[in-house]
Design a binder for these strands. Sequence first.
DNA 1: GATGAATGAGCGTTCATTCAT
DNA 2: GATGAATGAACGCTCATTCAT
Lengths: 217, 217, 217, 217
Amino acid sequence: MARKREGDKRRRILAAATKVFAKKGYFAAKVSEIARKAGVADGTIYLYFRSKEDILVSLFDEVMSEHVERAREELGAVEGAAARLQAIASHHLRVLGSDRDLAVVFQVELRQSTKFMERFSSTWLRSYFDLVGEVVEQGQREGVLRTEVPIKLATKAFFGILDEMVTSWVIAGRETDLTLLAGPLCDLFLRGAAHPDAAASRARPALQPVAAARGGR
Amino acid sequence: MARKREGDKRRRILAAATKVFAKKGYFAAKVSEIARKAGVADGTIYLYFRSKEDILVSLFDEVMSEHVERAREELGAVEGAAARLQAIASHHLRVLGSDRDLAVVFQVELRQSTKFMERFSSTWLRSYFDLVGEVVEQGQREGVLRTEVPIKLATKAFFGILDEMVTSWVIAGRETDLTLLAGPLCDLFLRGAAHPDAAASRARPALQPVAAARGGR
Amino acid sequence: MARKREGDKRRRILAAATKVFAKKGYFAAKVSEIARKAGVADGTIYLYFRSKEDILVSLFDEVMSEHVERAREELGAVEGAAARLQAIASHHLRVLGSDRDLAVVFQVELRQSTKFMERFSSTWLRSYFDLVGEVVEQGQREGVLRTEVPIKLATKAFFGILDEMVTSWVIAGRETDLTLLAGPLCDLFLRGAAHPDAAASRARPALQPVAAARGGR
Amino acid sequence: MARKREGDKRRRILAAATKVFAKKGYFAAKVSEIARKAGVADGTIYLYFRSKEDILVSLFDEVMSEHVERAREELGAVEGAAARLQAIASHHLRVLGSDRDLAVVFQVELRQSTKFMERFSSTWLRSYFDLVGEVVEQGQREGVLRTEVPIKLATKAFFGILDEMVTSWVIAGRETDLTLLAGPLCDLFLRGAAHPDAAASRARPALQPVAAARGGR
DNA sequence: GATGAATGAGCGTTCATTCAT
DNA sequence: GATGAATGAACGCTCATTCAT
């Protein structure tokens, strides 16, 4: 490992960890391998991180804080609920689709345990859900989105669709362009799968906006 | 350790493993704890399973083979794409919503490594996707579903929504009834989030049914 | 394993154990494999032997008691120390040379530990040494063997030569006829390696029949 | 645990292993006991050795490479086959006779499996046999040793005698001086057990220098 | 006697973490 | 700050032995 400029050790460790976690999985990843790949001594890792787990958590915190922030910025220039949802989707797919190792860590390794999941859910996922939720709510206020659809439900569904696209892409391992999915995906989310004229699509209206559908996570 | 009935040792081990995996996570789960909870000796586990990993894989294989089969049976009595999708959703939410420990194992533990994910994706998830895909395709042929939506995309989206609902429910830990979400969720999937009259919902039609959208997983 | 006549279970177990010990080594040999090869249930072994170790010890005791006895019988018909030593060597090489598995067990597995070695040395090896020692002593009394050679030393040397021939044969794994060595081996033992006329062979007479040379083992 | 000098950890582990292997036997020896006796942590062992087996093999390789080399050196100053054989015997008995634990490991533990035996036979034992064989061959060329005795047979016999002396000494456990046996042992090997005048010693000449007697090991 | 399912003690090895240099 | 040798707790798995049938 070439000695890069000084002081970027922390970044180098995180970069190395992303690769190792992606290749081996969190538990099978050895701290000494991360150290080797980062070009530092084993002990040095502990000058920057409290523990192996802290590396994973930091990885996630730092990537997320940057990207949720950037997503908000990008939204600033966009008008209308539909376009804004599409912007969020594009951003989501672009960030993860441009770094497979990072995507593996986010789609697979971070879901190791309920502990990580809970931490994940209560921090950045909450703020991401808030972001989407605000767009949905605004869309409903503006009359662009149907008010019968519970906001929480719509938010989770939107995230669920995005998440599944990324996971499929990670597992398939093929070199396709994830961002191309943003358009079709938003179209489906907004207009639905049903043909508008079909009686079927009205057969079963959402009678009860159920409690569970409002449950935060 | 009380000697219970007979021959149900295997079942008892799987039940105990489900609880322990759910509480501790796969890696932190100790084989001896599973044995203790199942009321058998440590070594007995290895009369029924090849390894700790084999317990997890068997858990998943057995639950799945039973439930995919049952889902197909339930579909037999249902007519129309919309109703059939709703039946699938109900079944999915009912199975996982009725056993939180099992849901934790499926939503969290089985996803802890690309190895499990790949196995998971190439077996039962594939057959589940086939099931949903057939319903969507049939719906399109019958003119009930829009043909502009790529089948693979619709399938993954439908699964992604369901999956996220279950994961949210698992993480939130609240005692809500998951099955109540089947109706609203299908309504959203079929009719979309957008108000049908809104120009917005037509603003960005799915121009290109992209290659990626067809990628299997 | 075909069910042979009844009651020979013990013999079948010993025969199976010989094969398994020879192939895997004592520690790596599994009792269940011996049972399978003997055509009995695992538990049955414990009706005939106290423990796995007891199988090895019994193997050795029974084979030995039979063969030391038979060696004595064969000696009955032989006159003269030289011929008797040759008879012993022939018998030794014939017994072990005719059953490679048995030879492996005797040359290798029985030397597992000082515990086995001590047991081995204090029982049949002692009686075997006694047998050889008597022949040597008699030979000295009759003036056929040199009295300067301590009896214990000659006895051990004779055994050491035989033992090394068998071990070499076991390790080499080649299909040679061990018994052919009896003649040359006795010739060497009796007449020595040196040319009788060479001064060298007299250069260093055994001045002190040392204490250690008399040590029993 | 007292931190002794430095870098001698490897040596300390080997020394501790020799003692533990000698007392308990290889299989019964616990790595943690070796560690305790060596004054290091369990894990430290694995910084110096790949496995428990590697400790035993290293023990043997290192002791041997040193002593075979030293034996060759000592031979440099000695003239004549008889004296050279005696030098080899003295060296052999001195090395093993000066460290009972080491002798136990060499005479007993290293022979516990065909695997070890084969390794043992194909490496240092081969070079040791070569050493003895050269001396014998030279002796025959010089007319000091009888050419009727096959070289391989003489070599194995010489080793067999030495080996049996050491094994007897190890098992007997008495505090005798092994090296005192070198003289009498060589006398017996060279001049034979028979009285030179006795007809007996010529009764059975080595008619056929048999194939088996030439088999390498 | 015979069975073989069940037992559970036992251990080699790994690897995250520490700390003297 | 940086190092990397040393630590030692932790655990999956095996297999000789038992005993209810």
